[in-house]
Design a protein around this nucleic acid. Structure first.
Lengths: 183, 183
DNA sequence: CGAATATGAATGAAGG
DNA sequence: CCTTCATTCATATTCG
């Protein structure tokens, strides 16, 4: 089935772990952030930066270009995605069955994946905020964070006491109603 | 040979030897759907469900959890992949010169792409963000010696200042200044 | 066993 | 901001 495989975008660097050597030829295709870039971006994110302004994007991109090719739009998209997924992640982790989550966690995910799409990793426990804000803006991380969204899942994603009927009750029949009309 | 792979592609081997014998390899690697789960998911797909909403995903996941460990994100990914690959095959089969040979457009980083990327952001009503003063006190900003004369080429409103000099790594003056106070 | 394949997972990029 | 698409990575499974 790989005939005609869309391989026009030659897989250049393959993994991002490129540290030396012919760094990503990066002929075309999409931006492949280096480890350092991801790390720094994550740091910024953790520091509370969520939606950098154009100027900030410019500067970040400029600085990060030291580690590899990068454009402003990459930074822009990165923050967009990171933020969005950080939020979506919360929603998607079902708190039903916890038999899976505790398996010592982060194994299959990359470093950035954990932050981005990783599941219930410990979110920033404390972003040692040495923040010295001059004006009462909303720059603070969590204060302005969830803005309009209320946190429905206030409790942690641990094995909270969900009403797990899956184990205790012996349901003689699976309550499966997967009809679209029901969903 | 580089010992790189610094943490990013953490392909930890801890998950080795998964399910050697144990049928329900509840190992933490990746979700391994059971036959019933796949069957039901396929049924739903065939019923026309393409991109379930969050609620639907939750319900499906919930129902399918009867057959084994599953999370919402598994359902989400399943539909994503299924749809994408259905399309992919489609595309492969009809490898005719479709009108949209726009694989060319994949030269993503061009003027149009940049402008578009920047576009969405420029719409920002430039609130005086200069007040964003944070002191992350993280490690990457240790070096004080960096000259404050950083000049970002803010010449153009667009972000057309990318110059990827991915030449090498000889200059190892790592310290960048990504402090928010600077940004 | 090792390559080829199928598929789960992740993420960059874009659209709306 | 939220959703969706496309591409790629990683791994389980199958096959020779």
């Amino acid at each position: 089935m790989d005939e005609g495989m869309s391989g026009f975008c030659i897989r250049n660097g393959s993994v991002r772990g490129n540290k030396s050597g012919s760094s990503t030829g990066t002929k075309c295709g999409r931006w492949n952030p280096t480890t350092e870039q991801v790390k720094l971006l994550t740091e910024l994110f953790r520091s509370g930066l969520r939606t950098p302004s154009t100027e900030q994007i410019q500067k970040i991109s400029n600085q990060l270009s030291f580690y590899g090719k990068i454009e402003s739009k990459n930074v822009f998209y990165w923050f967009q995605n990171h933020k969005a997924r950080e939020r979506q992640k919360r929603r998607r982790v079902s708190s039903f069955d916890d038999t899976n989550v505790n398996c010592n966690g982060e194994n299959t995910m990359n470093a950035s994946a954990q932050s981005s799409a990783g599941m219930h990793q410990v979110r920033e426990p404390d972003r040692v905020i040495e923040t010295l804000q001059l004006f009462p803006l909303n720059s603070f991380g969590e204060s302005e964070s969830e803005s309009e969204k209320f946190r429905v899942h206030a409790n942690d994603c641990r094995d909270n006491m969900m009403f797990s009927y899956t184990m205790g009750q012996q349901m003689e029949h699976p309550p499966l109603d997967l009809r679209l009309s029901y969903l």
